[in-house]
Structure formats: structure tokens, C-alpha cells
């Protein structure tokens, strides 16, 4: 069982992790920050990332046959890294989103996804 800060420490322990943010999707607030994110404007990043997730959800919902959508994780690769977003359903509000940016050269996407999945099971049990 993990606390929020421990969770972030473990996310940063994923090979190739550059920075990580825990985001409250509803309000777009940065709940906790790890790694290099401490240097950027996390408030803006968190708001932007939750907006990215929202837009993707809206877009995919209209293209999915049933019209509903549930994202397990989302990977976006840009020239400054792989960006992984994993929304976690919580009992009261949320979702809570784990965001991690991975180094293009030093990371293994499959491993990172696997680690995030295991982590989220220990952070939140649904």
C-alpha cells in the first residue's frame, strides 16, 4: 500500500523517468511533483495535461462504436520523450492521473507501462 509521495518516488524509479506529476483530473491541479518537473511551471503542465486527456477522451468517445470511452493509459511520443498518462478511478472524485515523461533513449515503454499498472494497483484499489 502506497501513499501519494511514495507513489511518485516509485514512478521516478522507472528506468528512464525524467519527471512525473500526479494530477487531479477534475480540477486540473498538480497533487504532487517529482523529478525535473520541479523546475517547470507544474501548475500549467498539470492543467495542460488534464486538458490533453479530456480532449482525447472526447475525441475517442465520438469515434468509438458505443460512444463511451475508458482510457487505461495513453502514450504520446514527442522529440523530448515518451509521455505516459494513466488515469486512476477513485471512490470519491477524480480520476487521479499519473503522468511520467521518459527519456527516448534510456527507457523501455513496455516495462514502464507494466510498472505503472502495478503501482496504480497499490495506490488505489477499486
Amino acid at each position: 500500500m502506497l501513499g501519494i509521495e511514495d507513489c511518485l518516488t516509485e514512478v521516478m524509479a522507472i528506468p528512464g523517468a525524467l519527471d512525473a506529476i500526479l494530477i487531479d483530473q477534475t480540477s486540473g491541479m498538480a497533487v504532487a511533483v517529482g523529478g525535473g518537473s520541479r523546475h517547470v511551471d507544474t501548475e500549467k503542465s498539470a492543467a495542460g495535461l488534464s486538458e490533453t486527456l479530456r480532449a482525447t477522451l472526447d475525441g475517442l468517445a465520438t469515434t468509438s462504436p458505443g460512444g463511451t470511452i475508458r482510457i487505461s493509459d495513453m502514450i504520446i511520443t514527442t522529440d523530448n520523450g515518451h509521455h505516459l498518462l494513466r488515469p486512476l478511478e477513485t471512490v470519491f472524485d477524480g480520476p487521479l492521473v499519473i503522468y511520467v515523461r521518459l527519456d527516448l533513449e534510456r527507457s523501455n515503454l513496455a516495462l514502464a507501462r507494466h510498472r505503472l499498472q502495478a503501482l496504480s494497483g497499490r495506490l488505489i484499489t477499486t
Binding site: 500500500m1 501513499g3 501519494i4 491541479m29 497533487v31 471512490v91 472524485d93 477524480g94 488505489i124 484499489t125
Partner: peptide, 21 residues
Amino acid sequence: LVAQGVLTRGELEFCVLSAVL
């Protein structure tokens, strides 16, 4: 609550965070 397994620590913290804000 955490010791009884009602909630994980992360859930408790997140719930407090949501409720307080």
C-alpha cells in the same frame, strides 16, 4: 482506517486533499 484495510494510504491522502481543497 488504513490499518483495517478500509482504504490504502494513497486513497486516504487523496480523499483528504479533495475534501480540504
